[in-house]
Design a protein around this nucleic acid. Structure first.
Ligand code: SF4
Ligand code: SF4
Lengths: 137, 137
DNA sequence: GTTTAAGATATATATTTTATACACCTTTAA
DNA sequence: TTAAAGGTGTATAAAATATATATCTTAAAC
């Protein structure tokens, strides 16, 4: 019942960018220092956010990253759904499931219901809603 | 975003017992064979369920375990809440939190909201609701 | 009162998942 | 050509989970 650091870092990056001007380029180094996360690790998070089309990256000198959409257009639920890689909430949700109850167990539907409500809740918020008012220096 | 095997095993044990007569004693060995789970491991799960007051255990020859309440009196949400040991949904929910955003981040409230809806959903079901109609042999 | 079948407990090990580090590559403006 | 930026692959570490091993305790049956 927890998000991976990877997902949380992804959201932290988006929040960081969200407090800046729309077209302001920000460097990974700056963010990694602010959050005390290794640059290389954060680079992967950033790269993935770019693949997911949430941010725009500019390579080379003078480069940086920036949000591709306005904070109020970015849905928290969608971000989590795309960033968290698996939602294997129980064994029977996994490809290697061997639970003998699978054909007759009612729990799986209940868990699925709960998971949907979890995601649906997140989907009621946008990046704008969770943005820190200002970043602390 | 997943339950531990431990929690799932706990529910499996309760479901197993729920398909039996109220005062029928069932042995751990039988359950562990049915589910292909090591006896010793399952013993710990069972022991914990006893500590949580969900089941009654009888030691010694002729012993076994049985539900302490009727399936319709056992709430799935409560069971999960008691069995799953931590709900550290993000770094800031942990005792060793070092996230610099903590004082200003809006995400933590959103995550908490989502988690509550997850648990609340589970709380709408009882063991009776998820019971397999019959155990397969 | 000894045996046997049951659950209880503590510790160690293995496995899996997640996070981080290291090393090097590519791009582009100055 | 250099320097500052992001990109990529692989290896390692750390943490969380799950399982195994070994032994103990209880109580009914004989
Ligand atoms: S089928 Fe039921 S008991 Fe088996 S893994 Fe799925 S939820 Fe758990
Ligand atoms: S404060 Fe916000 S960014 Fe930091 S761990 Fe909590 S939810 Fe994540």
């Amino acid at each position: 019942m927890k998000l991976t650091m990877y997902t949380d870092y992804s959201l932290r990056v988006l929040m960081y960018l969200g407090t800046r001007q729309p077209d302001e380029k920000v460097q990974i180094d700056e963010i990694s220092e602010y959050y005390n996360i290794s640059r290389n690790h954060l680079t992967k998070v950033v790269h993935n956010l770019a693949k997911l089309d949430y941010i725009h990256t500019v390579r080379g000198r003078g480069g940086g990253i920036m949000l591709k959409y306005k904070p109020e257009e970015l849905n928290v639920g969608q971000i989590v759904r795309n960033t968290e890689d698996n939602f294997y909430i129980a064994e029977c949700f996994r490809p290697d499931n061997e639970c003998v109850l699978t054909p007759i167990c009612g729990l799986q539907y209940v868990l699925n219901d709960a998971l949907n409500n979890y995601i649906n809740t997140l989907e009621q918020y946008t990046l704008q809603d969770i943005l820190p008012k200002a970043l602390m220096r």
